[in-house]
């Protein structure tokens, strides 16, 4: 029952949101394919080269590379490829149209494709589109591609989890964190 506003945006952000219907087998299938494609450095299956370039640039704006890997380094676009051929297939036309629109905007600005613009120019164009279903959907897909379990095609080598300090492990023993460790130490000291 938490973060309700943000949580609800998951539904709104992905445009149409038919993706929330059950497509579990399709996801697994798409994810397997995405994982194979990524490891082979292969082409994308469900999105074209021009779209892949735009989605790479947009996802790296959302979760940019710095001294640490960014979204595309982590395989987010491979995740998107699988998702747009699977559980988010309903959003694929809208995403493709959004990519084309960004390329057109870039072209009328400077004659280049969106991915060829400077980082600052890309940011400006995206800021003007923050509230569009396209940006909402790509934002959602980017974060899924970065942070969801690697079985879904992104989150290469679980690097995002490593960066945030998450360890996927089924059993832990207390103390769990700094403050409960200190709490137990104080209790021990009190007794001694």
């Amino acid at each position: 029952m938490s973060s309700r506003r943000a949580f609800l945006k998951l539904g709104g952000g992905a445009a149409g949101a038919t993706w929330l219907a059950l497509h579990a087998p399709a996801i697994v299938k798409a994810a397997d394919a995405a994982a194979r494609a990524q490891s082979a450095g292969a082409d994308f299956e469900h999105i074209g080269r021009a779209e892949a370039e735009v989605l790479t640039a947009v996802s790296d704006q959302i979760f940019p590379p710095d001294e640490r890997p960014g979204a595309s380094d982590l395989g987010a676009v491979y995740f998107m490829d699988g998702a747009l051929g699977g559980f988010m297939a309903g959003a694929a036309p809208m995403i493709k149209q959004g990519c084309a629109e960004l390329n057109e905007a870039a072209s009328s600005l400077s004659g280049l494709a969106f991915a060829e613009l400077s980082i600052e120019q890309q940011t400006t164009l995206l800021q003007a589109r923050e509230d569009t279903p396209f940006f909402g959907a790509v934002h959602f897909l980017t974060l899924c591609g970065v942070f969801a379990a690697p079985e879904h095609g992104g989150n290469r080598e679980r690097l995002s989890w490593e960066l945030m300090g998450f360890q996927p492990q089924h059993v832990w023993l207390p103390p769990f964190g700094h403050y409960d460790a200190a709490f137990h130490e104080e209790a021990v000291n009190d007794r001694s």
Binding site: S2, S3, I62, F63, P64, H139, F140, L143, C144, F147
Partner: peptide
């Protein structure tokens, strides 16, 4: 959990921007 954290703090959190370097 990692994904829900990223999705919810990115959508309803305290940041001026929900994407970009500061968001990351």
């Amino acid at each position: 959990s990692p994904l829900m954290h990223a999705l919810t703090i990115g959508g309803g959190g305290p940041m001026p921007l929900r994407w970009g370097k500061a968001f990351k």
